[in-house]
Simulated scan of single mutants.
Amino acid sequence: MVSMEEFREYLDEACEQIPEEYYGELNGGVLLREEVKIHPKSNGDELKIMGEYVYSRTMGRLIYIYYGSFIAVYGEASKELLKREIKHTLEHELTHHLESLAGEKDLEIADEIQIHRYLERK
């Protein structure tokens, strides 16, 4: 299993691969959280949240990446796969950020459609 320190290094690598301008107005930055985060509409604990874009008047704009969720899902995966999934999640959350700045909600709508399909299967 990858330690949180090693995971943080992978996350830092992923952050460095993305152009700086994508982080504009992301005043809270990208924060690594230790916990497993379960989606509120999950059937039990099967639907984990890997990352989350947050915008609030008090906290500003920031991205959470959930180490515990990644370990629960990818704990036995190769480091290469884990790194790819970290980067994919970071890009997904940055897309939410950029769309929020532009007043768009395309990815938010796509995420809701995925949840709706998940619930239909359950």
Rank of each mutant, 00 (worst) to 15 (best):
D111K: 00
F7P: 01
G28V: 10
R84N: 09
Y55P: 00
L101V: 01
Y66I: 09
L107I: 08
L32K: 00
E80C: 02
Y23M: 13
Y10R: 10
M59Q: 12
Y22D: 11
G29A: 03
R33E: 14
E21Y: 15
I65S: 04
E20G: 10
E93L: 02
L81Q: 11
G60L: 03
T58W: 13
Y74C: 02
N43P: 00
V30N: 08
R57V: 13
I63Y: 04
H39P: 05
E52A: 08
K37S: 09
G60Y: 04
G29D: 04
I63N: 01
L11R: 03
V36S: 02
L32C: 14
A14R: 06
E34K: 09
G103P: 12
E21C: 03
D12N: 12
E13W: 12
M50P: 00
I109Y: 06
Y67C: 00
Q17T: 10
E6K: 15
S100D: 15
Y64R: 14
L81C: 12
R84E: 15
T58P: 00
A110F: 07
E34H: 07
C15M: 15
I86M: 03
L62P: 08
G24H: 08
T89M: 07
E108S: 11
E6Q: 10
L81M: 12
V54G: 11
K87F: 07
Y74M: 07
T95D: 14
H97K: 10
E108N: 09
T95G: 13
Y74S: 01
F7Q: 01
L81F: 04
D45N: 13
S56T: 15
R61Q: 15
I49M: 12
V30S: 01
E112M: 14
L26V: 08
I113K: 15
I18L: 12
E35T: 04
Y64I: 11
G44P: 03
I71E: 11
K48V: 10
G103F: 05
K83E: 09
K41C: 12
M59H: 05
Y118Q: 04
E99T: 08
L101A: 02
I65Y: 06
G29C: 10
D111Q: 13
G103M: 06
M59R: 13
L31Q: 13
R117W: 12
A110Y: 07
T89L: 04
I49K: 02
S42P: 07
E16L: 07
S69E: 06
M59L: 13
H116L: 13
E34T: 06
V36Q: 10
I65A: 03
H96W: 04
R8N: 06
N27C: 14
V30C: 05
P19R: 08
I38T: 11
K41W: 02
G44T: 09
